[in-house]
């Protein structure tokens, strides 16, 4: 058995989930809201890519990806404006229910547009090429995903720790009301948080769907759920935690399949979630509040 191939594919899945998990964890850090619509936003960005490429065949693929990312950010921004922002002073449970509503709305909207049929993600040059590396043949996206996820995370962490805006984000996540009193425009901070989360989900969707090319309206459910578990395992609110959690989940599921436990790969993710919650309820990186966003 060639364990390397399972490890690499596990890290790839982990890297892709990590980009989604960061969205969950950042929104939680700021609003204490589990944004259940985030997995669906990931799926919607994949669907957008399909329609952009089909409707604008002359557009170079690089620009198509930029346009898709911009639209995804816009949708992420609009979701916040229309579904969460009016509920700012409502109980947290109401916002959560609104998030679940948005999630079903996006699913059904896509189902209506696609007729419920699976659509093929376009071929993405470079990352969609099959290569042989370390004795494993697969698409380049598989080898690149964890690297891109870690690079983007490092950039994000640098922004949060070393810019004025990052300071504002940290302040809001520490104490919502006090930072408002100190003159921080929290609505702007929240909007930008959603935009960053949506942008990372868009990058994740290109990496993920370049490999898993069939997309239907349920395609965001599984990655969304796994990314959420990853965020909790890593310590919800912590960005490096989300990445580490996602890589652990990705590798654990892949290794489960390598050792003939394919039937239990989901059980292992959820089992891991329960063990972490029992042993360390705040997650792996949970206590380090300085990195909370």
């Amino acid at each position: 058995m060639n364990i390397t191939s399972y490890l690499i594919r596990g890290l790839a899945t982990g890297g892709q989930f990590a980009l989604v998990a960061i969205g969950y964890t950042m929104v939680y850090g700021i609003l204490k809201l589990i944004n259940f619509a985030h997995g669906e936003l990931f799926m919607v960005s994949g669907i957008l890519m399909i329609y952009i490429v089909a409707d604008l065949p002359t557009l170079p693929i690089g620009l198509a990806i930029c346009l898709m990312a911009a639209l995804t950010v816009f949708i992420g921004f609009m979701i916040e404006k229309f579904a969460y922002s009016p509920l700012r002073s409502a109980p947290r449970m109401s916002v959560m229910i609104s998030a679940i509503g948005v999630s079903y709305l996006l699913q059904n909207l896509v189902s209506y547009i696609t007729g419920g049929l699976s659509k093929q993600f376009p071929d993405i040059p470079i990352i969609g090429e099959s290569i042989r590396f370390l004795g494993i043949k697969d698409k380049l996206t598989v080898f690149l995903s964890p690297v891109i996820a870690i690079i983007l995370t490092v950039i994000l962490v640098l922004i949060i720790n070393h810019t004025k805006f990052g300071m504002a984000m940290r302040a809001v996540s520490k104490d919502f009301e006090t930072s408002q009193l100190m003159g921080i425009k929290i609505n702007r901070v929240i909007s930008i948080t959603f935009a960053i989360g949506a942008f990372l989900a868009a990058v994740g969707s290109v990496l993920y769907f370049a490999k898993n090319t069939g997309i239907n309206h349920f395609s965001g459910a599984n990655p969304g759920l796994k990314a959420f578990i990853a965020a909790v395992v890593g310590g919800i609110g912590s960005i490096p935690g989300a990445v580490v959690g996602a890589l652990i989940i990705g590798v654990a599921e892949s290794l489960a399949k390598a050792f003939g436990l394919a039937d239990f790969s989901d059980v292992i993710s959820f089992g891991l979630l329960i063990i972490i919650l029992v042993v360390k309820p705040t997650g792996i990186f949970g206590e380090k509040t300085t990195e909370k966003v």
Binding site: G214, S219, A221, N222, K257, A262
Partner: peptide
């Protein structure tokens, strides 16, 4: 013989098997 859960989209690990 192996089985996979509903809504699985990535079959690389199974095919590697």
């Amino acid at each position: 013989m192996e089985t996979f859960p509903t809504n699985t989209t990535n079959f690389s690990d199974y095919l590697q098997k």
